[in-house]
């Protein structure tokens, strides 16, 4: 006798320790549940939204071609989220990343950082580890 509801996952979550992530790879483990790609580079770590900025389809990571690609209209993004092909007008959005008290990565999806507004310079958009 309950309504048929799908509850959405919380907007902020702990994503394990930075050492769980390999340098140079696009990590998929939170993609299905939260729609987040976590990418660790040599300098640090950032969380990319998987929503295409053209019309909102979910992008796929193509490892062989080293790019994110949207299945709806063919928009393409580099590993850092910058748009370079197809109709998309702006880069993928980043979520706030920080370290929780227990040393785990804390990702807050309610805070978004857009490159074209210069928000990727914000210290919360990038985690130095």
């Amino acid at each position: 006798m309950f309504p048929n509801v799908l509850f959405e996952p919380p907007t902020s979550f702990k994503a394990g320790f930075p050492s769980d992530y390999e340098i140079g790879t696009v990590d998929m483990r939170w993609k299905d549940k939260f729609g987040v790609f976590i990418i660790r580079s040599a300098e640090g770590l950032y969380a990319l939204s998987n929503v295409c900025t053209h019309l909102g389809c979910t992008v796929n990571w193509l490892g062989g071609e080293n790019k994110f690609k949207c299945p709806c209209h063919g928009s393409g993004y580099y590993k850092n989220g910058i748009n370079f092909e197809g109709p998309t007008p702006r880069p993928l959005e980043r979520f706030a990343v920080s370290l929780a008290e227990d040393g785990q990565i804390l990702i807050d999806k309610s805070k978004k950082y857009q490159q074209e507004k210069g928000q990727w310079n914000d210290p919360n958009s990038f985690l130095n580890v």
Binding site: D32, T58, P71
Partner: peptide, 10 residues
């Protein structure tokens, strides 16, 4: 439908 998975091509 799953909001995090888009068929390819959609």
């Amino acid at each position: 439908a799953n909001p995090t998975v888009a068929p390819n091509p959609s």
